[in-house]
Amino acid sequence: MQTYDLSDTHIVTPPEEIALSTHQLQVYYGNNRQASMTDASLSFPRFQITALIGASGSGKSTYLRSLNRLNDRIARVQGEIMYRNTNINSPKINVYEVRKHIGMVFQKPNPFAKSISENITFALKAAGITDRRERHQRVETSLKEAALWDEVKDDLNKSALALSGGQQQRLCIARAIAMKPDILLLDEPASALDPISTTKLEVTLKALTQKYTIIIVTHNMQQASRISAYTAFFHLGHVTEYDQTEKIFQTPKIQATHDYVTGNFG
């Protein structure tokens, strides 16, 4: 692999209202001295889609999973994650509250072995929403927002495991947005899906930006350029370039980014 100067970076701060930002985030796995993620400082604009791209092992998933403290059990995360003027990467923070505001959807669809509606109502109940009607209302709205309602509205009591992969993934999105989060993190949500399901998913995500801030990790550069407003390029645990998506793909400032988006990488 070609070596690039990792200190050579170009990172902008979006002029829009910022929903979430990180300052010098470092991630260490296990007892490693070597950081898997170094000095990541990014700001994510509200009601926009930001894409995180980069080769496998570049640290983009690690970074994403740190944002809602999901790495707590397996890694040490240093630095600041600012959300609503609060550093949520502090030991004093109630991580369960954080995760209610910052939802997440994973690479592989992971519905619970419960019915479709229970998949959504389960966390609502745990969060203390005792009103049945309110819960059912949320099932309907979230499934509609995730563009799944029409396909499953007659089978809400069927096992979620009987759905197709694409449907399961949209159910997982519905499950996440039923909690009414501010921010939605998506870790390669389309990697296990076929092209038609992927297109549906992208349309859904676009529509969701009316109410949610979305940060998405993707392997697929076309996908990043189709849906995102901003794009960050990750390389070997560093954020190399962060700018508006058009600029990243058309006039990248950094050599590594240029090589990656033109396919001359590695």
Partner: peptide, 16 residues
């Protein structure tokens, strides 16, 4: 705004 900040730092049912 403030209420959310407070919730983020206070123990909840989940932490109990």
């Amino acid at each position: 705004m403030d209420e959310i900040q407070k919730k983020l730092t206070a123990p909840s049912k989940a932490s109990r």
